[in-house]
């Protein structure tokens, strides 16, 4: 997920930024960076959450978040029940465990995305966590912790079906990082009927039997 950002290459600049502007129809990058800055200034929690205590969150206190902020975690706690409707366990503890583990793997994945795409995701998350843009662009009226699964589902549908490419792109970014972290995890392979690497090969290969 990226949005057009200011280009280093001076020769191309006027042409590129004009086309990018037309393409996104929203002023794209400039709008998002304004949001990001405003979010920082208004005290949105954009710092990595680090270790989140089990008392004020349902996260596993042993995991150290390197990218996701407390607000981002709340965002995913609201989105994932809609994202994985029909796939998450019903039993409350197992369900919570599956959601928390997925958010941790999302964090781990983003760390490896590197600085440029981290910056793009920071803009996206800030946009979703900053009330004025959450309301105008996502049309989500309450804070994420009070958003129902139905409202989260409606939000995902709106961004998927929007005629604005930038919002489609936001939908793809949110679903892609979540889908990979959830369905790609070995505890969830059964949901896609994937039996895992062939057992005979695992038995025969030295890297699975380190002394």
């Amino acid at each position: 997920m990226t949005t057009p950002s200011p280009k280093y290459c001076p020769e191309d600049r006027p042409e590129l930024s004009r086309r990018s502007f037309l393409k996104t129809g929203l002023g794209g990058a400039m709008f998002l960076s304004t949001v990001s800055m405003t979010a920082g200034l208004t005290g949105c929690a954009t710092a990595p959450a680090g270790r989140v205590s089990a008392v004020d969150s349902r996260m596993d206190a042993s995991y150290q978040f390197e990218f996701l902020s407390r607000d981002d975690i709340a965002l995913f706690e609201a989105l994932l029940p809609a994202m994985f409707a029909g796939a998450l366990p019903e039993e409350p503890n197992q369900r919570q465990h599956a959601i928390a583990g997925t958010i941790e793997r999302i964090d781990q994945g983003i760390v490896m995305f590197g600085p440029a795409n981290q910056k793009e995701l920071r803009k996206l998350f800030d946009l979703l966590n900053f009330a004025p843009t959450r309301i105008t662009l996502a049309r989500v009226w309450s804070d994420w912790p009070s958003v129902s699964t139905e409202s989260a589902e409606a939000f995902l549908n709106r961004w998927r079906d929007s005629r604005i490419g930038l919002l489609n792109n936001g939908y793809i970014a949110l679903t892609k990082i979540s889908n990979v972290a959830f369905y790609g995890h070995d505890a969830h392979w059964h949901l896609s009927g994937y039996p895992g690497p062939p057992a005979w090969a695992v038995d025969a290969l030295p890297q699975f039997h380190n002394a």
Binding site: F84, E153, V180
Partner: peptide
């Protein structure tokens, strides 16, 4: 599974059914 889930865009029950 991760490749398929990342490439086939979707969410919710529909995505779960597709990947199933």
């Amino acid at each position: 599974p991760a490749m398929a889930a990342g490439v086939v865009p979707g969410h919710g029950q529909e995505q779960r059914d597709n990947l199933g």
